[in-house]
Write a protein that binds this DNA or RNA. Structure first.
Length: 492
RNA sequence: GGCCCCAUCGUCUAGUGGUUAGGACAUCGGCCUCUCACGCCGGUAACACGAGUUCGAAUCUCGUUGGGGUCACCA
């Protein structure tokens, strides 16, 4: 029996992420990629990206592009793979057909695999017949061609000659020893009728050829690991280590799909989560580091280890995800000012605000950090600083820009026109002076002023807002607000 | 159904024989206050069940129940 190599302590590990390009990058896939990437980065190892496109029907170049884009956006850079090449390429399975054919032939020559001439139709018929007799029975390939001595040059698949007795055991870094009785195995197909390899063959050949030392993937692959182990043994190759990750299920506990939540990485990018926010949520799913919830990319690399990975499946929680994303946007040490601004600009553009002055943007940023839960939300909070006139919320205008408010707005505009300094403190002092003189509480004028300045009933503190807007816009808006309050019709 | 795996608040989790079972999200109160948000204080809320082992089990063993995965010429 082949032996399982250790976690690779010593030699730098070589790990891989091997998506099949049949759609966008799923967050579950992103998590698998992340765990592999973290392991490689923390150990000075190599992260290989391999495209498993042996199923010509389902694979597409668009999907490859989408997956590569998402990985790049997440910052999960690969050392070998598409577009970067590497010593053990090619990294598209569709370009390695000859190698798989040769590997399968060697197994046939060694008597460990055989040509099977049974057609799909024949097998389906047998399956039907069995079902008719016993609806509960599970059809297994009866071994019709297993002991054929001739191998006519007719269309065929290649089947692996699986052992019928004993058991296959492999050691998993997360789950420990997993043993499966060999009676459970049937003579599974390794090469299709069209000559293309099936997953188990291609994955084993590639993982071996690419010198992969640790195979980390979703728990849904645990079931075919024994088949792969059998293949390694048949080839006489050393086993890599295995690590299976617990599943990410829907909030209802089913397999996570679009029906339950946004599952594509690109959806979170479009929504304005930062890549680190996404990675942070994903990594905490199945992995923990004491009570710590928030991690920078660097911390993740420093702290990740397999012994802190959980065994139990979990349910996706959009609210928690949103909160983690928010933390990353809120903390300057996680998303610094300049980067925040760079990232929010496209979202502003989407709202029709092109080329907002960088200075004002920078001034407004501290006011929205605590408020914006994602970049789309940030653009919303930033909107009125850059739109002139601002969008006036109809209900807000109706409720607060009433005739009584007009004289206050007018008087404040005059007072501010004469104010020397233009900073939050001076602005506050000025307004408080006015209130004192009129013997009014702050509440009497706050909302009308806010609506005049921002068009909304909710905003950051008035004086901070005015400081960002500057004197000209502040005066313009206060006076426009006064006009609206008087019921003077057109505000402009 | 066979095989494999899992089991702490609603959710993500800490915990590795002795804790008032901790944190975070969500939720519910309160404080702060020019609105919103942030922040702060506090509340509700969990060891699936049953047998063992032990002076003592969330922690170890077995069983039950529940959940998930997998049984393709998909990956």
């Amino acid at each position: 029996m082949a032996t399982t190599s250790s976690t690779g302590a010593g030699a730098p590990p070589r790990v891989r992420f091997a998506p099949s390009p049949s759609g966008y990058l799923h967050i579950g896939g992103a998590r698998t990629a992340l765990f592999n990437w973290l392991w490689a980065r923390s150990q000075g190892g190599t992260f290989v990206l391999r495209i498993e496109d042996t199923d010509e029907e389902r694979s597409s170049l668009d999907s490859v592009r989408a997956i590569l884009d998402s990985l790049r956006w997440l910052g999960l850079d690969w050392d070998e793979g598409p577009e970067v090449g590497g010593e053990f390429g090619p990294y598209f399975q569709s370009e390695r057909k000859e190698r798989y054919r040769e590997a399968a032939e060697s197994l046939i020559a060694a008597g460990k695999a055989y040509r099977c001439y049974c057609t799909k139709e024949e097998l389906d018929a047998q399956r039907e017949a069995l079902k008719a007799k016993n609806p509960k029975a599970q059809f297994v390939y009866p071994g019709t061609c297993r002991d054929r001595t001739d191998q006519p040059d007719l269309e065929h698949v290649v089947r692996f000659k699986a052992p019928t007795a004993g058991a296959t055991t492999f050691h998993d870094l997360v789950f420990g020893a997993i043993t499966t009785p060999n009676e459970q195995q049937q003579d599974f197909v390794i090469v299709r009728r069209n000559g293309l390899p099936l997953y188990n063959l291609a994955a084993v050949v590639d993982d071996h050829d690419m010198r992969i030392t640790l195979v980390a993937r979703g728990r849904d692959h645990i079931g075919n690991t024994p088949q792969q182990v059998l293949l390694y043994e048949a080839f006489g190759w050393e086993l890599p280590a295995f690590a299976h990750l617990p599943m990410m299920l829907s909030p209802q506990g089913e397999k996570l799909s679009k029906r339950h939540a946004a599952v594509s990485v690109s959806e979170y990018r479009d929504r304005g989560y930062t890549p680190e926010g996404v990675l942070n949520y994903l990594v905490r799913f199945g992995w923990s580091y004491g009570d710590q919830e928030i991690f920078s990319r660097q911390e993740l690399i420093e702290k990740f280890s397999w012994d802190r990975v959980n065994k139990s499946d979990g349910k996706f929680d959009a609210a928690k995800f949103a909160d983690v994303a928010f933390e990353h946007l809120k903390r300057p040490e996680l998303t610094d000012d300049e980067r925040y601004l760079d990232e929010v600009v496209p979202f502003l553009a989407q709202a029709g605000i092109e080329d907002p002055p960088r200075d004002r943007l920078r001034q407004a940023l501290p006011l929205i950090r605590e408020r914006a839960r994602d970049l789309a939300d940030a653009a919303h909070h930033l909107d009125f600083y850059f739109r002139e006139p601002p969008r006036m919320d109809e209900k807000a205008v109706k409720k607060f820009l009433v005739p009584d408010a007009a004289p206050h707005l007018e008087a404040l505009a005059d007072a501010y026109a004469a104010l020397g300094e233009w900073d939050a403190n001076s602005l506050q002092g000025c307004l408080e002076g006015y209130l004192q003189q009129k013997e009014l509480p702050m509440k009497a004028v706050a909302q009308p002023v806010r609506v005049a300045l921002s068009g909304r009933t909710a905003s950051p503190g008035l004086f901070e807002v005015m400081a960002v807007l500057g004197r000209d816009l502040t005066l313009t808006r206060l006076r426009r607000g006064a006009a609206l309050a008087r019921g003077a019709g057109s505000a402009a």
